[in-house]
Amino acid sequence: MKPTLATDRLTLAYGSSPIINNLNLTIPKGKVTTLVGANGCGKSTLLRSLARLLKPRNGVILLNGKDITQQSTRKTACEMAILPQGPVAPEGLTVHQLTKQGRYPYQSWLSQWSAEDEEKVAWALEVTGMLPLKDRPVDSLSGGQRQRAWIAMTLAQDTDTLLLDEPTTYLDLTHQIEVLDLLYDLNEREGRTIVMVLHDLNLAARYAHEMIAICQGNVYSQGYPENIVTEELVREVFQLDCQVISDPVFGTPMCIPHGKGRILQHRKLTAIGG
Rank of each mutant, 00 (worst) to 15 (best):
M1K: 10
P3I: 03
R9M: 05
R9K: 14
L10W: 06
L12W: 02
G15L: 02
L23Q: 04
K29W: 11
K31T: 13
V32H: 09
T33A: 09
A38K: 14
A51V: 11
L53K: 06
N58Y: 12
N64T: 02
K66Q: 14
K66C: 07
K75V: 14
T76C: 13
M80K: 08
L83N: 09
Q85L: 09
Q85I: 04
Q85S: 11
P90R: 01
P90Q: 05
K100P: 00
G102S: 03
Y106D: 00
L110C: 04
Q112K: 10
W113N: 00
S114K: 04
E116M: 08
E116G: 01
A124I: 04
G129M: 01
M130Y: 06
V138C: 11
S142L: 07
Q147V: 00
A149D: 02
A152W: 08
M153E: 12
M153I: 07
T154L: 12
L155K: 03
A156N: 11
Q157E: 10
Q157I: 10
D158A: 15
L163Q: 07
P167R: 02
T168H: 07
L173H: 06
L180I: 04
L186Y: 05
T193C: 10
V197G: 11
L198W: 00
L198H: 04
D200T: 01
D200A: 01
L203R: 06
V219I: 15
Q222P: 01
I228S: 12
E231G: 01
V237Q: 07
Q243H: 14
S246T: 13
V249M: 12
G251K: 08
P257T: 09
G261Y: 06
L264R: 11
L264N: 13
Q265G: 03
H266D: 15
T270G: 00
I272H: 14
